[in-house]
Simulated scan of single mutants.
Amino acid sequence: MDARQARHLHEDQLMRLANVTGVGIGRDEHSGADVIIVFVTRRVPRDRLRNEDVVPDTLEGVPVRVLAIGDVGAQGGP
């Protein structure tokens, strides 16, 4: 299964996790392999998360990376 398929299969589940604001696809900066990127408001150590809120390391064999981006909100137009 490729990264796009794995993302599509698990996106709804990932979006229900604490602090998750988005899910995307990218490339690992070291290996160049496709990865699933989970965007979070802030990184939280695993031992401070409930088990059900831990982002998995892989999904369907595709590596998962967590990227903290802060709070996300809509910006007003002109």
Rank of each mutant, 00 (worst) to 15 (best):
A6P: 10
H8D: 01
I37A: 07
D47C: 10
M1R: 11
V20P: 07
D12F: 06
R48W: 11
L9N: 12
A18N: 01
A68W: 05
D71R: 15
L59F: 12
R43N: 15
G77P: 02
S31Y: 00
V66I: 12
V66C: 07
A74T: 05
N51H: 11
E52Y: 03
D57I: 03
E52K: 09
V62H: 02
E52T: 10
V38T: 01
E52R: 10
D34M: 00
T41Q: 13
R50M: 03
A6F: 04
A6K: 02
N51D: 13
D47F: 14
M15S: 02
D71S: 12
I69M: 07
R50D: 05
M15P: 02
S31M: 01
V62E: 01
F39Y: 15
I37R: 14
L49I: 11
M1C: 07
E60N: 13
D2Y: 01
L59P: 13
P63R: 12
Q13P: 00
H10R: 13
G32S: 08
T58Q: 15
S31H: 00
R46Q: 13
D2H: 07
L17M: 13
G73T: 07
D47P: 05
I69V: 15
E60D: 14
F39C: 10
A33S: 15
D71Q: 14
E60T: 06
R7Q: 09
A18Q: 07
L9G: 03
A3R: 00
Q13E: 09
